[in-house]
Nucleic acid binder design. Structure first.
Length: 196
DNA sequence: CGAATGATATACT
DNA sequence: GTATATCATTCGA
């Protein structure tokens, strides 16, 4: 159960880190209650040169400020006025790379996750989609800018191995506005059935 | 298929 | 300071 340290996040290759996050375990402790899930889907947002990124063109604002922090910082923002989306900031300080965590497979605190989502039984919809995942894990915008190393959100390595052959890559979701960058294969997914 | 729903960025006065 | 368009989505008809 080792918590990923700053060294893991500080690297420059956000796309490589996106692949490596598959199979890692996202853990939150909110109000003393812990919930966790294996990450099964991620999307890379490659800083200032990626039209789909909030930091495209070096747009540094109050909202995007956490993206410019050092790797291992949480970036959470409100989307469509309803959904809190959780991202992992990578790269060194000043490099606004981030990874959107889109889906997961429940591990710990399933009852609480069902309660937060207003559902009866665990199924693909419980943690399927970035808004649903954040909701189930209790992640809100108040946690943006917090540390993933010693904060309420962290990511652990449980030794789950995801072979490269089981990872599918494709274009990102909901970023049609990004022109040619919308076609980049920056979305990575592993079939939840492949996770032990 | 389309409404919901509010913070945020940007362009105005 | 005020106005308005725009979302890295979800759920229900």
């Amino acid at each position: 159960m080792k918590i990923l340290q700053e060294k893991f996040y500080a690297r420059d290759d956000v796309v490589a880190i996106s692949r490596e996050l598959l199979g890692k375990v996202l853990v939150t402790t909110i109000d003393g209650a812990t919930t966790s899930a294996v990450i099964t889907e991620t999307e890379a947002y490659a800083g200032v040169r990626d039209r789909a990124s909030h930091a495209y063109g070096d747009r540094r604002t109050a909202r995007t400020e956490p993206m410019y922090a050092k790797g291992g910082t949480a970036y959470v923002y409100l989307c469509y006025g309803i959904h809190h989306l959780f991202n992992v900031v990578t790269g060194r300080s000043g490099t606004p790379h981030a990874i959107l965590v889109r889906a997961g497979k429940p591990v710990e605190g399933v009852t609480l996750m069902l309660e937060r989502r207003g559902r009866k039984r665990p199924d693909a919809a419980l943690l399927g989609g970035p808004g649903s995942l954040a909701r189930a894990l209790g992640i809100t915008t108040t946690l943006t800018g917090t540390s993933l190393v010693d904060g309420p959100i962290r990511i652990e390595d449980h030794g789950i191995r995801v072979p490269a052959s089981k990872i599918s890559a494709g274009p990102r979701v909901g970023v049609d506005y990004a022109g040619a960058d919308a076609l980049l294969p920056y979305r990575f997914r592993v079939d939840p059935g492949e996770i032990q």
